[in-house]
């Protein structure tokens, strides 16, 4: 037990090493939060274009562009995308790495969210669409008032899953020398030569965050489900 205490002090207290964990956590949360917002926005827009094309045959060019985007983003690893954005796209620009990470993870997530939203929109019965149109709603109003609220409810579990993946994917931020939560633990490991404690600590923090988030999603799910008794 004394051994455990010594190691704890060595890894987290000495030289204020807990700062690596704490600051890393803040960076991870910051990246995740804004990347989720970007991902939802991007994904929603792409899904609208794609499902409008599926339903009406309009927006042909938009659909082609969205398809290429989804294919490229889903076809390449996120860590490669992150490095391309930092070392290629912004190579000659002095830019905050947090913004680079938000862009990379947000754009990546957008492709997945787009397909999640689209599957949600397509899963709403065609009769709902016809009922809306027959009352006199135009395409856009039908989407806003009738289709997307039901689609959102249908895809909430998949969406929650996507954000859990996103949160954990930000752990590769170290590749562009960002000090996120994972990197923070790794730095401590390299200073103290103790792998166990910092890495387990990092793992536990991720786990707790995911558990809290899952809880929030399931609470939201239950609230939205109050219409199907």
């Amino acid at each position: 037990m004394a051994n455990f205490q010594d190691k704890f002090i060595l890894n987290f207290i000495t030289d204020n090493r807990w700062h690596y964990i704490w600051n890393g956590l803040l960076t991870t949360l910051q990246i995740t939060f804004f990347a989720v917002l970007l991902g939802i926005t991007l994904g929603f827009l792409i899904a609208i274009v794609r499902s409008t094309h599926d339903k009406t045959g309009r927006m042909k060019i938009g659909n082609v562009i969205c398809n290429i985007y989804i294919t490229v983003i889903r076809g390449t690893p996120v860590v490669v995308q992150l490095m391309i954005i930092y070392y290629v796209v912004f190579s000659s620009v002095d830019i905050n790495k947090v913004i680079v990470a938000i862009l990379a993870f947000g754009m990546n997530s957008g492709a997945y969210v787009a397909e999640i939203f689209r599957s949600g929109i397509m899963s709403v019965d065609q009769g709902q669409f016809e009922a809306g149109r027959s009352l006199g709603f135009n395409y856009r109003q039908t989407m806003i008032h009738i289709i997307t609220p039901q689609a959102f409810k249908n895809v909430l579990p998949a969406l929650g899953n996507e954000f859990i993946v996103l949160l954990k994917e930000t752990s590769v931020s170290g590749y562009i020398a960002m000090q996120d939560l994972t990197k923070g633990g790794d730095i401590i490991r390299s200073r103290t030569f103790d792998a166990f404690m910092p890495l387990i600590a990092v793992a536990i923090i991720y786990l707790v965050m995911v558990m809290i988030f899952s809880k929030l999603v399931s609470m939201l799910e239950r609230r939205l489900r109050n219409s199907d008794h």
Binding site: D125, G127, Q128, E130, A131, R133, S134, L135, G136, I146, Q150, S227, D228
Partner: peptide, 15 residues
Amino acid sequence: RQKMGMVFQHFNLFP
């Protein structure tokens, strides 16, 4: 269409 009501076989109420 606002002046033409329509009733469907499967009701299509908004759940």
